[in-house]
Design a protein around this nucleic acid. Structure first.
Length: 584
RNA sequence: CGGGGCGUAGCGCAGCCUGGUAGCGCACCUGCCUUGGGAGCAGGGGGUCGGAGGUUCAAAUCCUCUCGCCCCGACCA
């Protein structure tokens, strides 16, 4: 609850509500934030926060701030413009790619806009922290970040400029770092619970930040950009990029015993799995998809059961095995272009197969033990049937390379996975010594020995959390704010501002509530009631009080909760009590 | 980056094909009326038609270039 002086009159506040949302607003949170006068676009992926929008952002920030402080973290503020040297040190200047917006100052020196602050914080800590006695430490900031996204969209959900809480912890030991990871996991759980969100913590890939393991906090919503796999029995849940496929023996491909002779069949213009399986009247499970890939290490082929999808995140990690190289992941993998496909298969795209292929082959476990399969024949308009592993071709290595699908067995228990969608609002990483080593950030341990800091980092998208809340809490008329994020607690609608008794009553209630520390938005506009109701529904303040002359004559005021459909009456004298009760 | 689409008043759009006074709805301003679910009537303001160049007596409209915005993009092996 915010204190006194936090209330507002509609006529004093810029709340430009609109009936029709601009066409480019796709998801509901974007549309409603625009329509409710919370945000306005300045450029692609860059927004102004209007007064109403800022109030919600501040609500989220304060919850995050309170919980981070409670968890023992210290607030700092780092610059948004960062000298390139720091990014050179961590090697990310070259690796991070086009998402990093680079710029030069008047002396022609290189800088970037911070998309994340591992380098800056590591630099800050290495300058002033020397001893294990000063550890552990956890610093956080709430600050604007910039990532030059290829395709900004969905309003605050995927902007280029966005407000983020990012925290970085420093430890003397792995155990200590893991304790803090757990501490942050619990803190994040508290934060999102306080925000009133339905969410799930899932195992995740560490992506460009790097590190040894991580969890994402996902707000469950149909419009979410991420797919997550979740077990219906145990608490296993993971981002689809990371979700492990359990090796399982499937029915169709093992029904056949004995290996039939390899045969070439004509399949004119049949390229896709769907076309080929329909044409040859075989189950797609018996097809082997052969994808030709390029990577930073070299070209190769990937085999996959016909009805599965390749997971490039997993593939990246296994590329070194194909070429018998060290444990370093491939920097990049991508589907080979037509020319490369032709060079390797001697055929146009659509007819690649493992038999007689001039490159190394990695296969998903789903190919293991497959008998009498169908593959491309590396020849235009032809496929092989009755293809068998080892007899007809060799596989360099097997690995888990596919996306899990709904109905897969859980990798941890005998439950079943289901797929749902989520919006990533928080992400925690155990980094280890990745940055402290490359940037030479070290402390002296109790034996006087120099050791790199063990680090963790923890982010929360502030604007995205607000947007996610709208995705979960709205109806056809507008936003339905949960109390903790609501820009105001109470929205007073005097039906007729020209009626003295109505306005006097409204003012009285406004003052009474405000004095009691409840934040109130009073719609004192000289507008028709219908319009004010529409705006109230749109803006979504949890409690609406309607002050009308007829009810007033009977000493009554109407209360309507935004999340309920029907209003009810309350005695004027008991109003404060009732409102306080509803706020709990 | 590749493919597609769109730039005309604050928002949503028509006009463009077939060149000739720049329009409609909402919003905005004034007045009257009205006050429990985006009222009504009357009057009014607001446009470098994204920008530059070209064709033409004449360009929102035709041509060239350019900028911006939006949508889709392994599933083809």
């Amino acid at each position: 609850m915010q204190g006194k002086g936090d209330s507002m009159r509609f006529t004093k506040m810029l709340v430009p509500t609109i009936k029709e949302a601009p066409k480019d607003a796709e998801v509901i949170s974007h549309q409603l934030m625009l329509r409710a006068g919370m945000i306005r676009k300045v450029a692609s992926g860059i927004y102004n926060f209007l007064p109403l929008g800022l109030r919600v952002i501040k609500k989220v920030e304060n919850i995050v701030r309170e919980e981070m402080n409670r968890a023992g973290a210290q607030e700092v503020l780092m610059p948004m413009v960062i000298p390139s040297e720091l990014w050179q040190e961590s090697k990310r200047w070259d690796v991070y790619g086009r998402e990093l917006l680079r710029l030069k100052d008047r002396h022609d020196r290189d800088f970037c806009l911070g998309p994340t602050h591992e380098e800056v914080i590591t630099d800050m800590v290495r300058r002033d922290v020397r001893s294990y006695r000063q550890l552990p430490l956890n610093f956080y900031q709430i600050q604007t970040k910039f990532r030059d996204e290829i395709r900004p969209r969905f309003g605050l959900m995927r902007g280029r400029e966005f407000i983020m809480k990012d925290a970085y912890s420093f430890h003397a030991t792995e155990e200590c770092a893991e304790r803090e990871y757990k501490n942050m996991y619990e803190t994040y759980t508290r934060i999102f619970e306080r925000c009133g969100l339905k969410f799930k913590a899932v195992e995740a890939d560490t992506g460009q930040i790097g590190g040894s393991f991580s969890h994402e906090f996902m707000v469950l919503a149909e419009t979410g950009e991420d797919a997550i796999a979740s077990c219906n029995k145990c608490n296993y849940a993971a981002n689809i990029e990371k979700a492990e496929a359990r090796r399982q023996v499937s029915g169709v491909r093992c029904q056949v015993s004995g290996e039939k002779p390899l045969t070439k069949v004509s399949t004119p213009h049949m390229k896709s799995v769907e076309e080929v399986s329909k044409f040859l009247k075989v189950n797609p499970q018996l097809l082997v998809k052969t994808l030709i890939y390029d990577s930073s290490i070299g070209s190769f082929a990937v085999l996959l059961r016909g009805d599965y999808e390749l997971n490039e995140t997993k593939l990246k990690k296994h590329v070194p095995e194909i070429f018998n190289q060290g444990a370093v992941d491939a920097d990049w993998v991508k589907l080979a272009d037509d020319k490369t496909v032709r060079d390797i298969t001697n055929a146009p795209s659509g007819f690649a197969g493992p038999v007689g292929l001039k490159c190394k082959i990695i296969a998903d476990y789903s190919i293991h033990g497959i008998k009498n399969a169908v593959t491309g024949a590396n020849e235009k308009d032809a496929h092989f049937i009755n293809v068998n592993i080892d007899r007809d071709f060799k596989v360099e290595t097997f690995a888990d390379l596919r996306n899990v699908v709904s109905g897969d067995n859980c990798p941890r228990c005998d439950g079943t996975l289901e797929i749902m969608r989520g919006i990533e609002v928080g992400h925690i990483f155990k980094l280890g010594a990745k940055y402290s080593e490359s940037m030479n950030a070290a402390f002296l341990d109790e034996n006087g020995k120099e050791r790199p800091f063990i680090m963790g980092c923890y982010g929360i998208g502030i604007g995205r959390t607000a947007a996610a809340s709208i995705e979960q809490n709205h109806d056809k008329d507008g936003i339905i704010w949960p109390f903790p994020l609501a820009p105001f607690h109470v929205h007073i609608v005097p039906v007729n501002v020209n009626d003295r008794t109505v306005m006097d009553a409204a003012e009285g209630i406004y003052n009474e509530l405000e004095t009691a520390g409840i934040s109130v938005l009073m719609d004192d506009r000289d507008e028709r009631a219908g319009m004010k109701f529409k705006d109230a529904d749109l803006i979504g303040v949890p409690i609406r009080l309607t002050i009308g002359s007829k009810n007033l004559e009977n000493g009554m005021v109407e209360i309507k909760l935004r999340k309920e459909t029907t209003p009810f009456l309350c005695k004027r004298d008991e109003l404060l009590e009732k409102v306080k009760g509803a706020l709990k």
